[in-house]
């Protein structure tokens, strides 16, 4: 009871701080200095219409590399925690528990509608994901968003055909290759242009066209593939082990 009171008091104090913050809030009428710099110089310097992409991929590219690393580590952590090949003796009671659960739980196969819709829509979902990360420098979207859409396609597949096999090797290969290429593009920026992850290693091209903004589309393709396959691997890990006959 005293603990509840303590929590309540803490939240109340926090709410008071938040209230003070919100009551003194006035909306910005102009951009911050940094935002202004990006707005004025960004399109000319980098050739990317989408300024968020310009900030994420180039101006703060190192942060994005760190972000991709964090995502990789968390995917690896999920893989470690939910690994499937177990030593029998260690986890014998666990295995037994699983089996008991499996017989207790009622598995229903996905309905005809879901299966047919998946066959029809899955290629389009994946194509849309690719579209989103290819156009990351032109329109709202980018590598992470496109990758998430591709992973939602995988989710779709797992819902409709739970026993479908997803190749670990393929996922690992594409993921490592795209991660490696991302770093290589970054290092090329040091050698050929102004610094790490500088996008001007390639021609800036016509402003607003698909193949423009230097290396940004290239980087976003790598990020999109990496994120998409990584999240697919995470979803695959959360699937019930040994799905068996459903």
């Amino acid at each position: 009871m005293i603990k509840r009171l303590f929590i309540f008091m803490m939240l109340l104090l926090l709410a008071l701080i938040f209230f003070k913050l919100a009551s003194n809030y006035t909306e910005n009428t102009q951009l911050s200095k940094l935002g202004q710099y990006y707005a004025e110089k960004g399109p000319q310097e980098l050739g990317a219409p989408n300024l968020v992409t310009a900030v994420v991929v180039t101006y703060r590219g190192l942060d994005t590399l760190g972000e991709v690393t964090v995502l990789f580590i968390s995917a690896a952590g999920v893989g470690l925690l939910l690994r499937r090949t177990r030593r029998k003796q260690d986890d014998e009671d666990l295995e037994q528990g699983d089996r008991a659960e499996e017989t207790a739980g009622v598995h229903k196969p996905a309905s005809e509608i879901v299966e047919t819709a998946t066959e029809l829509l899955l290629p389009m979902v994946i194509l849309f994901g690719i579209y989103v990360f290819l156009n990351g420098h032109l329109s709202p979207g980018g590598g992470f968003q496109g990758g998430a859409i591709i992973a939602s396609g995988t989710m779709f597949l797992l819902l409709a055909l739970p026993e479908s096999h997803i190749s670990r090797l393929l996922i690992a290969t594409i993921e490592s290759l795209s991660g490696f290429s991302y770093v290589v593009v970054g290092v090329l920026g040091v050698i050929l242009a102004g610094g790490f992850l500088d996008n001007r290693i390639m021609d800036l091209g016509t402003y607003g066209s698909l193949f423009s903004a230097g290396a940004i589309p290239l980087i976003y393709v790598f990020v999109g593939l990496k994120v998409g396959f990584e999240l697919s691997a995470v979803l695959d890990r959360f699937r019930k082990e040994d799905t068996g006959p459903l």
């Binding site: 951009l31 935002g35 968020v52 310009a54 994420v56 964090v70 995502l71 992470f144």
Partner: peptide
């Protein structure tokens, strides 16, 4: 410069969403 919102917090949130997901 006079018509857009600040791109920096948006980029920051993009990063934060991905970290939160992980």
């Amino acid at each position: 410069a006079s018509r857009i919102v600040d791109p920096v917090p948006s980029a920051l949130v993009l990063t934060a969403i991905v970290i939160g997901l992980g």
